[in-house]
Simulated assay, not measured.
Amino acid sequence: MLEQLEQALAAEDPKFASSMEGSRRGGPTRLRWVVAVVGVLAGLGLVLVGINTTMWVGAAGFAVMVAAVAFALHPPRRGGGGKLAVVRDDGTTGPASSGRKQKSGSGFMDKLDDRWDRRGRDGWS
């Protein structure tokens, strides 16, 4: 039944279905696990050496261990390029940097009021 739902989703919205494919695994890949284990072992070795020598070697070892675990748990980057687009008031899209600039003094409530006014003016329900 789940396969039928996946196939229906892929037929209905292929872009969304392809973006959800990577989240099925749920965890780090095998290479990330290997890098993390090697990094933690190297960091632990540096901590043990730092006990006998200087505190800075131990601190570097701890930093290596934290970085290795963070690398393993952080999801891998997707090949989408990561560029953001802005949808302007007239319905056109463009790069985020070319969007209109916000007033320096505009606050959160002002932005909400502007959205509410646009919603009523454009006839959104």
Rank of each mutant, 00 (worst) to 15 (best):
V57R: 01
D90K: 08
A70R: 04
R25H: 13
T93S: 01
V64K: 03
L46D: 01
G107N: 14
R115T: 14
S106H: 10
G99V: 03
V47M: 10
G120N: 12
S98N: 11
A17Q: 00
V87L: 14
R24C: 03
G107C: 08
L48M: 08
E21H: 09
L31E: 11
K103T: 12
G22P: 05
D90R: 10
W56V: 12
R119G: 08
S125P: 12
S23F: 10
L84H: 12
L84D: 10
A70D: 06
G120P: 06
L41A: 09
G80Y: 14
G45C: 02
A42S: 03
W33L: 07
D110R: 04
R77C: 00
S106M: 13
G45Q: 03
L41I: 06
F71T: 01
R88P: 00
R78D: 04
S19F: 15
A8T: 13
D122E: 15
Q7S: 08
M20A: 09
L2D: 11
S23E: 04
K15D: 11
G94C: 01
K111C: 08
G58R: 03
D89I: 05
G50M: 04
L9N: 09
D90Y: 13
T29F: 13
D110V: 01
S18K: 14
R118H: 08
A96W: 15
M1E: 11
R100T: 13
A96Q: 15
S104V: 13
R100P: 15
D89G: 06
N52S: 14
S23T: 14
V38E: 07
W116I: 14
W33F: 11
Q4Y: 14
G26I: 09
P75M: 00
V40R: 06
K83S: 09
A70M: 05
W56I: 10
L31A: 14
D90P: 04
G123D: 06
N52M: 13
L31T: 07
E21S: 13
V34S: 07
A70H: 00
V64Y: 08
V34E: 06
A11M: 09
A8Y: 13
G26Q: 02
A59I: 12
G94I: 02
V49N: 05
L46W: 07
T93D: 01
S106D: 15
V40D: 06
S18H: 15
G79A: 03
T29K: 11
A59N: 04
M20T: 07
Q7D: 12
L44F: 07
T54Y: 04
G82I: 03
K103M: 09
D89H: 06
G91A: 02
T92M: 08
A42I: 02
F71N: 04
F62N: 02
G123F: 12
M20G: 00
S104E: 14
V40P: 06
T53N: 05
P14K: 01
G105E: 15
F108L: 15
R78S: 02
G50Y: 04
G91N: 04
W33P: 00
F62T: 08
R118E: 08
A59R: 10
L44S: 02
A96D: 10
K103V: 06
V35T: 11
T92S: 13
T53F: 05
D89L: 11
G50K: 05
T92W: 04
L2Y: 13
V57Y: 04
A96E: 12
A17N: 00
G91H: 06
G39M: 02
K103E: 14
V87I: 13
A70T: 00
